[in-house]
Amino acid sequence: MTTNVLILCTHNSARSVLAEGMLNHWAGVLGKDVRAYSAGSAPSGRINPHALTALQAAGISIEGYRSKSWDEFTGDSAPDIHIVITVCDNAAAEQCPYWPGKPVKVHWGYPDPSNASEDQKASAFELTRQALGYRMLQLLAHPLNELDSSEVQAILSHISKT
């Protein structure tokens, strides 16, 4: 069974997209049956070009990324979500919709790389991509589809402290 992970950030334009890209990349490299998605409560309608550049520079295809609403993941045709990760402070404080199946939730906050000065933006996005990638590797080190929700919650909580 595929473990579906939904990564949320308010505008779904940078951090959540970087996290989606890194989790899907590492899951593919490691042969893990994990699928990441990203969304936002108030999607901007566009992906920050610096996020796409950071993914592309890491050898990750940027095809198919788009800024989308978390509403796409609440309907009958949506994938069953097992884990919800918020990566920005605004999304952590927002009231999330009801997710069928009661997914495990965690907040892994990252500063918004979009707020960096223009001459530091590329570096800020790259550092955010690396930090997210590191946490995704930690997550994938566990047999997620063999664990119950309390075990997954403990793993996510432990990773949030690293």
Rank of each mutant, 00 (worst) to 15 (best):
N4A: 09
L6Y: 00
I7S: 03
L8S: 09
H11V: 04
A14M: 09
A14Q: 11
R15W: 04
R15A: 10
V17Q: 15
V17D: 01
L18D: 06
L18G: 03
E20L: 01
G21L: 03
G21T: 06
N24D: 12
N24F: 06
N24Y: 04
G28F: 01
L30E: 02
Y37N: 01
S38R: 07
S38E: 09
S38N: 07
G40W: 01
S41W: 08
A42D: 13
P43F: 09
P43E: 14
G45E: 12
R46Y: 12
N48Y: 09
P49H: 02
A51Q: 07
A51E: 10
A51G: 02
T53K: 15
A54D: 09
Q56V: 00
Q56F: 02
Q56E: 13
A58T: 04
A58N: 11
A58S: 08
G59Q: 11
G59Y: 03
E63T: 12
Y65E: 01
S67D: 11
S69Y: 03
W70R: 13
D71M: 12
E72Y: 05
F73V: 07
T74G: 15
D76Q: 14
A78I: 05
A78L: 06
A78S: 13
D80Y: 03
D80S: 13
I81T: 05
I85H: 09
T86L: 08
T86F: 06
A92F: 08
E94A: 13
Y98R: 09
W99D: 11
W99H: 05
W99Y: 11
P100H: 14
P100C: 05
G101F: 08
G109Q: 12
P111A: 15
S117P: 02
S117V: 06
E118H: 13
D119R: 07
D119F: 07
Q120F: 04
S123A: 15
A124G: 12
F125G: 11
F125Y: 12
L127G: 10
L127N: 14
L127T: 10
Q130C: 09
A131M: 13
L132V: 09
G133P: 00
G133M: 07
G133T: 05
M136G: 06
L137Y: 04
Q138N: 14
P143Q: 11
D148K: 07
S149V: 11
S149K: 15
S149C: 10
S150L: 13
S150N: 15
S150Y: 10
V152R: 15
I155E: 02
L156A: 06
S157M: 12
H158P: 00
I159P: 06
S160Y: 02
K161H: 15
